[in-house]
Amino acid sequence: MKQATRRRIGHALSYAVLLGAAFVSLFPLFWTLSTSIKTRNDTFVLPPKFFNFEATWKNYIAIFDTRGFGQIYLNTVVITLASTVLCVLISTLAAYSLARSPRFRSRRPLEISMILVRAIPAIVIMVPLFTITSKLGVYDNHFALILMYAAVNVPFATWLMTSFVEQVPVTLEQSAAVDGAGRLQILWHVVLPLILPGMAATTIFVALLAWNEFLIPVMLAGNSAKTLPVFISGFISARNLDWGPMAAASSLAILPIAILTVLAQRWLISGLSSGAIKG
């Protein structure tokens, strides 16, 4: 009896904490979305209006009317997709090597380099990269940005993919080899189909990181390759902060992610758990 009561109190406390945490997690999201459809008057008012306001699309229209916004959104989508494909391909090849070949000459140096890439703050390389890209004439260049985006995410994607390749039984490959299949054939016909779910999870992650990337484009993109996070950051230099359009721009960055999270949560969580420890 006493133990049952104690357990019930324990559960009630757990739910209270979870509900509190869920509220704190979601409130800023809710607040941004609701601010994005408020009129200026409803935005700057106390007590704040949580539900009792009239919805308007004016803020979104203002954002879409901003000169160059279509180009900015397009840039973000293109750079995200291209760099993600590139990064996942390169990382899968490296992951196959790391998972299947215990000893090849550049294994140890590669592992160390990847960890260093993860550990060294990217701001350090931005100053020389700015000088280098300017000298090479590829400042504000989509292709250069795609390469850099892919590079910063290669270590994380490689660790994630290595753990997925390791889950494929080696015996499958060995029997294919006995049947006379070449190494690349095995990789293509035996390994690839089995790691596709892992590749999908990795793709989602890398795409998220690329979509959110700010440091690289804020320093190395000008007007023609500008991305959404850079556009959003531009609001802070405006003298009178206009919260409505600001919230609308933020929502345009955040909404695709929130939807993706709910749709792909199973993959996200398994991927996060296996890749997180290392990277």
Partner: peptide, 11 residues
């Protein structure tokens, strides 16, 4: 609870 870590830091 995992949603916050995935959102664009700038936003």
């Amino acid at each position: 609870l995992i949603i916050p870590m995935l959102l664009t830091p700038v936003a």
